[in-house]
Structure formats: C-alpha cells, structure tokens
C-alpha cells in the first residue's frame, strides 16, 4: 500500500482502568504503557512472540478461556483483568513447575541476582516448590571458546533459538526432543565449539533470561546481561528484508 494505514483507536478497561489503544497494540504492550505489571519470560522485545511461558495469561470478561496478553490485541469495550487471585496462583505454580524441572539452585549460579526467573519468583511470592524435582540430568557444553550452555538451568523459552534465527540469521540454535526431554541444541546436536554456523556473536548469551547460556570465567552472581540492543537490531533486520 502506498500510504500508511491509519490505525483505529480502541478504548477498553484494564484492571478497572480506562485505557485507549491502537488496534495493533497487544494487552501486554498496553499494560506496560500504563504501568501495569504482567509477568513474562519467553517474550523479549525485538523477537517474535511464541506465547509459550503462559505467565502473561490474563482474564477477559465474557471469555471463559484465559488469553496470553502478549498475543491478544485490544478490542473495543474489552475488560481485562491481569491480577486476580486465580492468575496469581497459576503464575506461582508455573514458576514452581519450572523450578522443579531442572537445576535452579540460585546460590551457586553465575546469574544469581541478575536472573529473570529468580526475580519473578521473588516478585510473585513463590516461597517454595511443592513438586519434587524431576532429577533430570542434561548435558553441559563447554566446548565453545567463550561461552557455556548449562542445559540444566535452561527453561526452554527459545529466546536463543529466535535471536540466532531472526537477528543473527545463523540458526545455530534449535530444540530437539519433546516434553521434558526437549532441550536446546547447537546445529544438529553437535558440540557448540565445533559449530560452523555459530558466529560467536554472543546474542544468545545476552537474551538468555537465566544462567543457562553464559560467558566463561564468570563467578557466582557476576553474569549480568543486557538486551537493549535487540529492538534496534530487529528494526534494521526488518528494513533489510
């Protein structure tokens, strides 16, 4: 189309507050704009949305199913509830499930104090995990010159897979296996250090929300990450296409 499409404006309610939105805005974007907190883990600005972590589920009046805020667009007259007792319980339980899946011992993690999962556990008030740990053992790959992947700390948010595919255009990362056996792999599940697609750009390290993909040589609590580079790069990539 030659001219820019004019976006229509919607008005709706989030947690009882009147807000206005463009029709292409999601509930999550709107909530953030209005200072309303909705937890997320798999979402990261600049990468495609997958709706996989289910933490951002919200209630919408008149709908019997919960909807992911990251993928649901504003509609006229919509009434959204982001913080009901039911949602709080679900979110805590989802975190408990994540903690029970792998090794999430914060005390000895390089990302201690700088981890999105840990921060959410604190913010959402998860004070213990009711489920027994699944006691899985997953492979730690230290073959890369500069980076390490500890799959025991991975939460399978697939940010690494997406950033590598969508921004770096290398597609070194992918996911293999299913259910609790699913894990992130490099190339065709060959050692990371031997990868001929990996450009060693380190974007996967920077988007990983936990201490799963990290730089070598970091001590406990040292692995700070920044991903503010992403939205800009994403725009540049879009333009290049």
């Amino acid at each position: 189309m030659a001219t820019a499409v004019r976006s229509r404006i919607r008005t709706l309610k989030i947690d009882g507050r009147d807000v206005s939105a463009r029709e292409d805005e999601t509930i999550l974007e709107l909530a953030e704009e209005n200072g309303i907190f909705i937890p997320t883990l798999c979402r990261i600005e600049g990468l495609s949305l997958v709706g996989a972590c289910r933490l951002c589920l919200v209630e919408v009046a008149g709908m019997n199913k919960l909807v992911p805020a990251c993928l649901t667009y504003a509609t006229e007259g919509m009434e959204v509830f982001t913080d009901s007792e039911r949602l709080r319980n679900y979110r805590r339980m989802i975190l408990e499930l994540l903690f029970s899946e792998g090794n999430h011992i914060c005390a000895i993690c390089v990302s201690n104090g700088k981890c999105e999962l840990q921060a959410l556990a604190q913010r959402l008030g998860m004070d213990h995990v009711r489920f027994a740990n699944l006691q899985q053992e997953r492979l730690v790959d230290m073959t890369h010159e500069r980076f390490v992947v500890d799959r025991n700390r991975c939460i399978l948010c697939a940010r690494c897979v997406r950033v590598c595919d969508e921004i770096e255009w290398a597609h070194t990362w992918d996911i293999k296996g299913r259910g609790v056996d699913a894990r992130v792999i490099t190339d065709l599940d060959t050692p990371w250090g031997e990868s001929d697609t990996c450009t060693s750009c380190g974007k996967c390290v920077r988007v990983c929300p936990v201490g799963a993909i990290v730089e070598k040589g970091r001590a406990v609590g040292e692995m700070a990450k920044r991903h503010d580079f992403l939205p800009h790069l994403a725009k540049m990539r879009e333009a290049k296409k």
Binding site: A52, A132, L156, A182
Partner: peptide
C-alpha cells in the same frame, strides 16, 4: 507433550 509451554511440559510430568 511437545515441550513448548511449561504447564503441559512439566505439568504432565508432575
């Protein structure tokens, strides 16, 4: 379970 979303991946195992 395909393992994509947490409730199904870990929830079914638990």
């Amino acid at each position: 379970s395909c393992g994509k979303c947490i409730p199904c991946r870990v929830g079914t195992a638990q």
